[in-house]
Amino acid sequence: MVEVFPRLLPGLWVTIKVSFISLFFAFFIGLFFGTINSVFSKFNPFNLVTRFYVWFVLCTPIIIQIYAAYLLLPKAGIHLDVFWVGVIVLTFNSAGYQTETSRASISSIPKGQYEAAKTLGMNFFNTMFFIILPQAIKRMLPATANEASHLIKASAILSVIALSELHKSAINLQGNSYKFIELLALQAILYLPLVLGTSYIASYLQRNKDDSSNINLAK
């Protein structure tokens, strides 16, 4: 176990990279879609498209999405490195979930905030950028940290398209050494602190949410 440990570390690094790059992209895409979703009326075409997208992401297993991207992107004439295919799939998947969280947190901002902004003579974009979104993003943070732990777990599935992240490099070593149980235990040891650490951050943010996001008028 000690001997193969260093050989898993590049895999671990790829896992972290692919998850966090996807989280970064998915955060902004989700924020964009969520804003569209909560600002426009229910039967607006934009809104219908984003609803359909979220429904699609929620209702298909991620492995199907991975195969679809892996097989269809070259057909569409886009030839990418397998790492970027992984980033695209995870972003696609996670943006669906983050659209939901950002929609929920934007619509949880009280209406008085919009009215106050209007009274100050702000236009729509100013209202969104300076008033609504800063508050909404604060409320989104716990869910985003949770999403990070989901993404780390989902990145293990990218091994089916031969991206050499942690799980795949462990599989390769298993094939070489036939030490199945040891390598599986090692993977568990490496994944556990990552995933539990991010979900611990999530619950920490959750606990401290109430005093940070509410505006204290007495101040």
């Binding site: 732990s149 780390i152 777990k153 989902a154 990145s155 293990a156 599935i157 091994s159 799980h167 599986l184 993977q187 568990a188 994944y191 556990l192 995933v195 539990l196 979900s199």
Partner: peptide, 10 residues
Amino acid sequence: EFTRGVPQLV
């Protein structure tokens, strides 16, 4: 915590 923290594939 184990079932939550380790990827399902693993």
